[in-house]
Amino acid sequence: MNHYAARAARVSAGPVLILIIAILGMLMAPPAGAAPSAGEGTEQSLGNDVAWPQCNKALPSAPAFGIVGVNNGLANTTNPCLAEELRWAKAITVNPTGQPNVALYVNTANPGLAGSWWPSSNDYPEGHTVTNPYGTCKAKDVGAACSYMYGYAKAYDDAYIRGISSPGDYLWWLDVESGNSWSATDKNANRAVLEGMTDFFHSIQADVGIYSTGYQWGQIVGTVSSAGNLYTLPSWLAGARTASGAKANCANAPLTAGGKVSLTQFVSKGFDYDYSCI
């Protein structure tokens, strides 16, 4: 997940001033793992998301809720620390927000024929024919029909082959970022991938949301029709640089006109923090 962290500016100073600043920093620093605050009560609304970059590292302490990445950075991979990070999230007992204690997020993409696997029919898994709103997927077709099947298949894999027990019990966030592979010319096909994933997760009675920034969503997906299954999905907005900025971003427009902003994200002290807007 791209966290859009700001890079700190370097300031030149003499040795004495550096020593004074270092001492003050130690005296004023919050305890390890303390949640940043954007005002009265804000820290109580903060959760954390973790994934493969946090493998074999200390995880945030006492979050209000946890969101765990299922993949290893690509849509066709598994986070090697998934089981450990799920245990961390499932240990959460105090959650004053409207978020579930534990949610999941998955990488999304539309690699087309450049991918290591691309569908050639409406069958997935083998022997199960999927009802495809875009028609029949055929070999070497990179249009909406096969894109929908690619999304459906990746969601099926996320639910059933990556070690998730009771996948229908979770809220699944679709991570939509320009860092993954997408068609540069066919937003309809990109949209179909996400629709295929959403239809699969809905078929197992799971909830679905969308993670992105407004800019990236516009570049990859564009406008969503009110008739589509993405239209009313909740948004998780990245891009804030501080806790107060994340709190303010709750008032931003959602990624789809029929949805609402449920979460916002910022980075602090090496951790991803998520502010609950509900």
Rank of each mutant, 00 (worst) to 15 (best):
N2Q: 12
H3D: 15
Y4R: 08
A6T: 06
V11K: 13
V11Y: 13
L19P: 02
I20W: 13
L24H: 10
M28S: 15
G33D: 05
P36I: 02
P36M: 01
S37N: 04
G39M: 05
G41D: 12
T42R: 06
E43S: 15
S45Q: 15
S45F: 14
L46G: 08
G47Y: 00
N48H: 10
W52K: 12
Q54R: 12
C55Q: 11
K57T: 15
L59T: 11
P60I: 08
P60C: 08
F65Y: 11
G69E: 00
G73M: 07
N79V: 05
P80Y: 14
C81Q: 02
E84D: 15
E85F: 13
A91S: 15
I92V: 12
V94D: 15
V94L: 13
P96C: 09
N101W: 09
N101S: 14
V102A: 07
L104A: 08
Y105K: 05
S116C: 10
P119C: 07
S120K: 11
S121E: 00
S121D: 02
N122H: 04
N122C: 03
D123Q: 11
P125S: 03
G127F: 03
V130L: 03
P133L: 08
T136S: 09
K140D: 11
K140Q: 14
A144R: 13
A144V: 09
A144H: 04
C146G: 06
C146A: 08
Y150F: 12
A153W: 04
A155L: 00
A155G: 03
Y156M: 00
R162W: 07
G163R: 07
I164D: 02
S165I: 14
G168D: 07
G168E: 06
D169E: 14
D169L: 08
L171R: 10
L171C: 09
W172G: 05
L174Y: 01
L174E: 00
D175T: 03
E177S: 01
E177D: 03
S178V: 12
S178N: 13
N180R: 15
S181F: 08
W182L: 05
S183K: 07
S183A: 04
T185K: 09
T185G: 04
T185N: 09
D186A: 08
N188M: 12
A189M: 00
N190Q: 08
R191H: 12
R191D: 10
R191P: 09
A192Q: 05
G196T: 06
M197H: 02
V208W: 00
I210Y: 00
Y211N: 05
Y211K: 02
S212Q: 01
S212D: 05
W217A: 05
S225Q: 10
S226I: 00
A227L: 07
L230F: 01
Y231C: 06
L233M: 06
P234W: 01
L237V: 05
A240K: 02
A243R: 01
A243N: 03
K247W: 03
K247F: 04
A251I: 10
A253N: 13
A257R: 04
G258C: 03
T264R: 02
T264E: 08
V267D: 08
S268A: 11
K269N: 15
D272G: 10
D272T: 14
S276W: 03
S276F: 03
S276L: 06
